[in-house]
């Protein structure tokens, strides 16, 4: 029995390894190409990256550092804005009684039903009208506004699951509601907050269509815009893209996400598998 089970598990591992291999193909390709001289890529596609050509990275870093810094700053500010405001609102909706609460909460979740395709065009017009177009703070404001509904929805559910007694005793001790939010509710909600932050980071970091519309001028380019148009020149390769440098840029762009995962993977997996984000 155990022997058979071991056999099944071993076969499972083999199958998983096979799938894993194919999943890694683009990553492997990216990393090997990024370490090769582009002339070598065109000359002998299958040649190993020996010796590794690190200068590809120097060049890519030089070109992409500014857009990457821009994107990360924007994402960080957006995430702070999203979580800060939504924590306050979610706490009120979860813990306080007030006039019009039901109605206002329906107002929040009703907008859930409105898909992004409907609001893309008018958001563009709105950004133009408000003078938020072609400005990074403008785009950030849109991200903060756009992230509210989902965050409030998730956080409210989490705050509601926290025991009322803690807050009651805090009130008896004379703590203000604002203190209750930041001293009790938020620290307890850390896993879900980190999950929210990661989800928002991934969404903002990977967003392409909206920044393309919002930021037409080159000095405001986000990383995704810069990457999809990245064509470094190389006088040794007339008329051909410098694949080594380009793929080095791709690797560089993956590092922030790698760091985010390394820091928050535990929470992220917990958040997704615990069923908090389900129906």
């Amino acid at each position: 029995m155990t022997k058979r089970a071991n056999l099944t598990s071993s076969l499972s591992v083999l199958a998983l390894l096979a799938i894993l291999f194919f999943s890694f193909v683009p990553v492997i390709m990216m990393v090997t190409m990024s370490l090769k001289d582009s002339i070598l890529i065109y000359g002998d596609f299958w040649a190993p990256p020996i010796p590794p050509m690190w200068s590809n990275y120097n060049r890519a870093l030089l070109d992409l550092l500014a857009p990457a810094a821009r994107t990360i700053t924007m994402a960080a500010v957006s995430i702070v804005g999203i979580t800060f405001f939504s924590c306050l609102a979610a706490y009120a909706f979860a813990r306080l009684k007030f006039f019009g609460k039901e109605f206002l909460f329906y107002l929040v979740i009703f907008i859930f039903l409105v898909p992004g395709v409907l609001t893309l065009t008018p958001s563009f017009v709105l950004a133009n009208t408000l003078g938020l177009r072609n400005s990074l703070p403008g785009l950030t404001l849109f991200y903060i506004g756009g992230g509210q509904v989902f965050a409030i929805f998730i956080l409210r559910a989490f705050f509601q699951s926290q025991p009322e007694e803690i807050f009651e005793s805090a009130r008896l001790d004379g703590a203000s509601e604002l203190r209750s939010v930041f001293a009790i509710a938020v620290p307890l909600a850390r896993p879900i907050l980190v999950t929210l932050a990661i989800m928002n980071f991934l969404a903002i970091y990977n967003d392409l269509i909206w920044p393309l519309l919002m930021l037409p001028s080159p000095e405001n380019r986000t990383l995704t815009i810069a990457l999809q148009a990245y064509q470094p020149l190389n006088e040794r390769l007339p008329g051909r893209p410098d694949l080594g440098v380009i793929t080095a840029g791709y690797v560089f762009a993956s590092i922030p996400i790698l760091m985010v995962f390394a820091f928050g993977m535990k929470y992220y997996i917990e958040g997704l598998t615990s069923g908090a984000i389900k129906s």
Binding site: L88, L96, K97, L107, P122, S123, Q148, V149
Partner: peptide, 21 residues
């Protein structure tokens, strides 16, 4: 107090979600 807590979010939602809709 409750209104003050939800006000920033509600204003953001109103401007960036309801107005475009």
């Amino acid at each position: 107090t409750a209104y003050l807590l939800i006000a920033p979010s509600m204003i953001l939602i109103l401007i960036f979600a309801y107005v475009p809709t």
